[in-house]
Write a protein that binds this DNA or RNA. Structure first.
Length: 423
RNA sequence: GGAGAGGUACCGAAGAGGUCGUACCGGGCCCGACUCGAAAUCGGGUUACCGCCUAAUCCGCGGUACGUGGGUUCGAAUCCCACCCUCUCCGCCA
C-alpha cells in the first residue's frame, strides 16, 4: 500500500513510475476521493467538537439542578447529524481503500523499465551447463525410472499438480530442506522459525495477497483460514502491528514451509513434472530492515540464496525483473534461475524482493528511528530456495548415462553419505 | 465440544454513566540530584493514530481509540447485543 499523502504530494512522479508497470491505476480518482474524505472528516470532527462541548455543559448544569431539556434536544440533533455524516465518511473510506489497496508498489529507480519478461535484465551467471554425451532426460523420466517419483499415484490422493516422492526421493527432499536451513542459520545468520501453514485474511492482506489475488489461494471453507502460498506470509506477519527497536534491525529469519497455490489461470503451463505444483516445499528468507540500507540487504539476501546453488554446483543466472514483470508488492526483484538441461533453458528457482514499506504499511510494522519517532520499516524476502525445483534440477543436471544421479557433495552428509541415486 | 474467568498505556493493574485516556497505584524506561563511581533514595518526564495549521516528522488546535462491530443515552471504558481472542477446569485427541 502506498502512502496516500505521498501520492497526493507527488502525483506526477507516482503516475510516471506506475506507468512503467503497465496497467491502469485510478490515481486522480484516489486524490479526489481523498479530498472528499478529508472534507467529510473535517466536518464530522467539527460536529464532534460541538457535541463534546455541549454535553460537558449539560453535565455541569444538571449537577446544579438546572433543566437542560432544550440543550439535550440540540445535542441529540448534532448526534444524528454525526451519525449520518459518518455513514458518508465510511462509504468514502471504502471507495478510497478499494482504490488504494489495488495500487501496486512503485518500482525503485534502479529497476529497468520494460513491458514484460522479455525485457528482464540478466546481471550475472555462475558455473557452466553440464555437457552430456547422450540425450539428457527430464526429471519425470529420471525420477520415475529410479522409483523415487510417482506422479500417477499422487493424482489418486489429491489430483493433478500434486506429487508423491518415494524412498531416496523423499530423503533427498528432506535432505535439501535441512541443508538449506543449516546453511542459512549457521553460515548466514538467519534465525529459524517454524510457523503455522495457514494464515488469516488480515495476514494475507498485510503481505499484499489479499484482496486482489484471492483466486491464487486455497481457502479453508467456512473459516477465515487460508493455506499459505509462501512462508513470506506467516513470517512477515510475525511482527504485524508491532514496533521494533532500531538496534534489533535488521531481523533475519529463515523458515521451511510447504506452500499452497491454486495456480488458477495457469492451465496448460508446465503440466508435466514438478515445476508447477499446488503444493511444494520452500525454504524462505525474510528480513525486516530500516529503510536506510534495505537495498544492500536485498543484495546480500540474494547472495545468500545463490550460495545454496553454488554449494550444490548448479549452473544459474540472476536477472533483474523489469518494471512490467514485477510482483504487486515489490519495489525491486531479482530472480535466480537454475539451468535445466531437459528444457535447455534457465527456470526460476528463487525470487528475491525488497518491498520497501509497502507491506509494512499494510501490516502496520514499524520501528523507532534515531529520533524515537515511529516509522514503517522495510520488508524483504526471497526463496532460499524452492526445494522441489532444486530437487528436479539436481536430477537433471547430475544425471548419468545409466540413469543414475550423482548426489552433490554438499548434500551427501544429509543423505547418510550416499554418493548417488541408483535403481 | 461443555463450564467458568478475562481482554484498559511498554508491563502488571484500578476505574462500574459526566470534574481527568496529559487513565488510581506499582514496575519499567528517559533526564536530573545525592555519590569517587554504583546501588538504594529523592525530584521531574514518558500513549498512539488521524485531521487542521506549518518549510517542518517542532509547536499549537481539534478529533479518535479501554479486544472488534453494533445499540441505548444529551453524554459510554462503564449499560445492552453480537462476534473475536486469551487463560483455567472437564471431555476428546497426536
Amino acid at each position: 500500500m502506498l502512502d496516500k499523502n505521498f501520492v497526493r504530494e507527488n502525483l506526477d512522479l507516482v503516475k510516471e513510475r506506475l506507468a512503467t508497470r503497465g496497467g491502469r491505476y485510478s490515481l486522480d480518482e484516489l486524490v479526489s476521493v481523498d479530498t472528499e474524505w478529508k472534507k467529510a472528516v473535517l466536518r464530522s470532527e467539527e460536529l464532534r467538537r460541538r457535541r463534546n462541548e455541549a454535553s460537558e455543559a449539560i453535565g455541569k448544569l444538571k449537577r446544579n439542578g438546572v433543566d437542560t431539556s432544550e440543550q439535550q434536544a440540540t445535542v441529540k440533533q448534532i448526534s444524528s447529524e454525526i451519525k449520518s455524516l459518518d455513514e458518508t465518511v465510511q462509504a468514502i473510506e471504502e471507495r478510497l481503500n478499494s482504490i488504494l489497496h489495488g495500487i501496486p508498489n512503485l518500482p525503485d529507480s534502479s529497476v529497468p523499465v520494460g513491458a514484460d519478461e522479455n525485457e528482464n535484465q540478466e546481471i550475472r551467471r555462475w558455473g557452466t551447463a553440464p555437457e552430456f554425451d547422450f540425450d539428457p532426460s527430464d526429471h519425470v523420466d529420471l525420477g520415475t525410472n529410479l522409483g523415487i517419483l510417482d506422479t500417477d499415484r499422487a493424482v489418486k490422493i489429491a489430483g493433478a499438480r500434486f506429487s508423491l516422492l518415494r524412498g531416496e526421493g523423499a530423503l533427498m527432499e528432506r535432505a535439501l530442506i535441512n541443508f538449506m536451513l543449516d546453511v542459512h542459520t549457521l553460515d548466514h545468520g538467519y534465525q529459524e522459525v517454524l510457523t503455522p501453514f495457514v494464515a488469516n485474511s488480515t495476514s494475507l492482506f498485510g503481505t499484499g495477497n489479499l484482496p486482489k489475488f484471492a483466486q491464487d489461494l486455497f481457502k479453508i471453507e467456512g473459516t477465515d483460514y487460508y493455506l499459505i502460498p509462501t512462508a513470506e506470509v506467516s513470517v512477515t506477519n510475525i511482527y504485524q502491528g508491532d514496533t521494533l527497536d532500531l538496534e534489533e534491525l535488521p531481523k533475519k529469519f529463515v523458515a521451511y514451509t510447504p506452500c499452497f497455490r491454486s495456480e488458477a489461470g495457469s492451465y496448460g503451463k508446465d503440466v508435466r513434472g514438478l515445476i508447477r505444483q499446488h503444493q511444494f516445499n520452500k525454504v524462505e528468507l525474510v528480513k525486516f530492515t530500516a529503510p536506510t540500507g534495505s537495498y544492500e540487504e536485498l543484495e546480500s539476501l540474494t547472495r545468500d540464496a545463490e550460495d545454496i546453488l553454488q554449494r550444490l554446483g548448479l549452473h544459474y543466472r540472476v536477472i533483474t525483473l523489469c518494471t512490467g514483470d514485477m510482483g504487486f508488492s515489490s519495489a525491486k526483484t531479482y530472480d535466480i534461475e537454475v539451468w535445466l538441461p531437459s528444457q535447455n533453458r534457465f527456470r526460476e528457482i528463487s525470487s528475491c524482493s525488497n518491498f520497501e514499506a509497502f507491506q509494512a504499511r499494510r501490516a502496520n510494522i514499524r520501528f523507532k528511528n534515531e529520533t524515537g519517532k515511529r516509522q514503517y520499516l522495510h520488508t524483504l524476502n526471497g526463496s532460499g530456495l524452492a526445494v522441489g525445483r532444486t530437487w528436479l534440477a539436481i536430477l537433471e543436471n547430475y544425471q548419468q548415462k545409466d540413469g543414475s544421479i550423482v548426489i552433490p557433495e554438499a548434500l551427501r552428509p544429509y543423505m547418510g553419505g550416499r554418493k548417488s541415486l541408483k535403481k
